[in-house]
Amino acid sequence: MSAAKPVLTARGVEAGYHGRKVLQQVSLEVARGELLAIVGPNGAGKSTLLKVLSGALRTWAGAVELEGRALKNMDRRDVARRLATLGQESGSAFAFTVMEMVLMGRAPHLGAMRLEGRRDVDIAQQALRSFDLLPLAARPINEISGGERRRVLLARVLAQEPQVALLDEPTAFLDLKHAAEIFARLEDLRAERGMAVVATLHDLNAAALYADRILLLKDGAAVACGRPQDVLTRDNLQTVYETEVYVGRNPVTGAVAILPAAR
């Protein structure tokens, strides 16, 4: 991906919590329209890396750049117009409707005292439609299922119209159909708008199937980064996950397919 100029870059990033370092010298680049998957075992620093990329967590060393500008020097709203995050949030203490929740994605695009206008409502509705949520638009967000709430948050990311979407486990709580639909929607958006996606995924097969490139993390450091077939090798996976795996091919898609092989 060296041909296109990267939209998001991290160079030699180190970060952590309460004096405990989690990330060690991690670097990455994401180009327009690309899907970069971050994979690795529990506690490898996947979510921490996303928080550094979103600016929610300060770097101890190294730098993050969004469209060539240092993230930490940018205005928050300026960043939020270009970069949207799907985190592990669980809702609100108050009964906002699904539609209101998605409209909140328009906040960085509006002045402080402005109500959402017709265009914002159109955008939010389009986002709801993308994730089959229109029938739920009037429901309070704390009265829908976990999987539905996950899709609502994804719709909000869409309504934010970002250049880069940072998705922490986008398919958590989702069934097979909805998970596949989400990757299909993301693919559309990447093609139509050139939106780049950085997603943490615990599902290696989804990463192999949908990602352009994969960053493999272990103990907060990058073990490998590149095309799925080059990163998801038996050697790499057995080193990182410390268990036996079988690496083959998905006969339908041709993508790398991984199965646990420990008895």
């Binding site: 709203r77 960043v79 939020a80 949207a84 995050t85 203490a93 909140m104 402080a112 934010q160």
Partner: peptide, 21 residues
Amino acid sequence: WHARDMNLLSLGDEPAHDLGV
């Protein structure tokens, strides 16, 4: 002046931050 920020803050510090607050 901060009324909309209150909507976003009610989601949590991180979501509010990510939405530009």
